[in-house]
């Protein structure tokens, strides 16, 4: 500790904030050393910028069938870089606006799935006895139900709208997360600091929220990015099957339209390949990021914060 570092009155909140900043910085530094993760992040940033800037990049009137300016299934030209669809709309415009729906559905569905999966996983790992078995059976039950038929049934019962698609994907994709988090929770429950917390008088809520959750959070985070990929694919699948929101263009509904318009047989590759490639790129970017995060956060895959010898003491910082 240098003399210049005056550490006078720190409130508890300031201490916490500093700590968070510090750990975020450490994670970022480690993430930067994973080249594939950085590539994934780059791709993702491009797509997010495109989705956010859609109104600037392409006029929304280009989505209207009635306001279509091009011919039917025109090949790419200087005017229509990626050609037109069967209604004469620019495929590029559809692609740009489709990014919004795909990313929105992917992220929101993942958020739902993560919340359910983490709650169920932590609770079933923390409690003993019947609550744990009930939650575990529930997880297994959801896990063994064939996913796509369940999603199709739910989507047709609830009706086709964007929010319903989000709900369907969120509610059907949590069991994998729950199992992962449960396993992690069980291993954390055995650590002595939970015994110490119990001896200090901590209740279940305190133990779960203060000790288990912060220690499984990295796993949740890494798993999130992998789930986003699955959610986007599922959205594409459901839209392709005609269960998507009919009022909104997504990459999946573009593929569905292309299929319906016979783009495959007429050789209108510009209608099929761009949305397919976009789906693949976004899914790939999330997977690359997820892999990198997993490697950073999974204690078994790295020399981590539990291993004090591998890191220099940071007390001497100026």
């Amino acid at each position: 500790m240098s003399a210049g570092e005056a550490v006078p009155r720190l409130t508890a909140r300031q201490v916490t904030r500093r700590r968070r900043r510090e750990s975020a910085r450490r994670t970022w530094n480690e993430f930067r050393s994973h080249r594939s993760g950085v590539v994934g992040l780059g791709i993702l940033v491009v797509f997010v910028l495109v989705a956010l800037g859609a109104p600037l990049l392409a006029d929304a009137t280009g989505l209207k069938v009635t306001a279509a300016t091009g011919g039917v299934l025109e090949a790419p030209s200087a005017e229509y870089w990626l050609g037109t669809d069967d209604n004469g709309r620019s495929v590029l415009t559809l692609l740009i606006w489709g990014a919004r729906v795909s990313l929105f559905v992917g992220l929101l569905a993942t958020a739902i799935s993560m919340v359910i999966g983490t709650l169920v996983g932590v609770a079933s790992g923390h409690f003993r006895g019947w609550p744990s078995s009930v939650l575990f059976r529930l997880t297994e039950w959801f896990l063994v139900i064939p996913f796509l038929p369940l999603a199709i049934v739910m989507a047709s019962v609830l009706g086709a709208s964007l929010i319903n698609i989000v709900l369907v994907i969120g509610v059907t994709s949590w069991p994998g997360t729950a199992l992962l988090i449960r396993a992690q929770t069980l291993s954390i429950e055995e650590r002595p600091f939970l015994e110490r917390a119990r001896a200090l008088g901590a209740g279940h809520w305190h133990q779960m929220s203060r000790h288990v959750l912060p220690n499984v959070m990295p796993m949740v985070f890494a798993n999130t990015t992998l789930t986003v990929a699955i959610a986007i694919l599922t959205e594409t699948t459901l839209s392709f099957l005609g269960l998507g929101d009919p009022l909104r263009v997504s990459w999946g509904s573009m593929l569905d339209d292309a299929f319906g318009a016979g783009a495959i047989t007429t050789g209108a590759w510009w209608f099929i390949i761009p949305p397919g490639i976009c789906v693949i790129l976004v899914v790939l970017s999330f997977t690359l990021i997820g892999r990198a995060l997993e490697e950073i956060f999974n204690p078994r895959l790295r020399r981590g914060i539990l291993d004090e010898t591998s890191k220099p003491r940071r007390r001497e910082r100026s």
Binding site: L10, A12, V15, R19, S23, R191, P192, F193, E195, R196, R210, H211, P214, N215, I305, L306
Partner: peptide, 10 residues
Amino acid sequence: GALNPRQTVY
């Protein structure tokens, strides 16, 4: 083991 590795001493 008795100290949560994610918590500061404080």
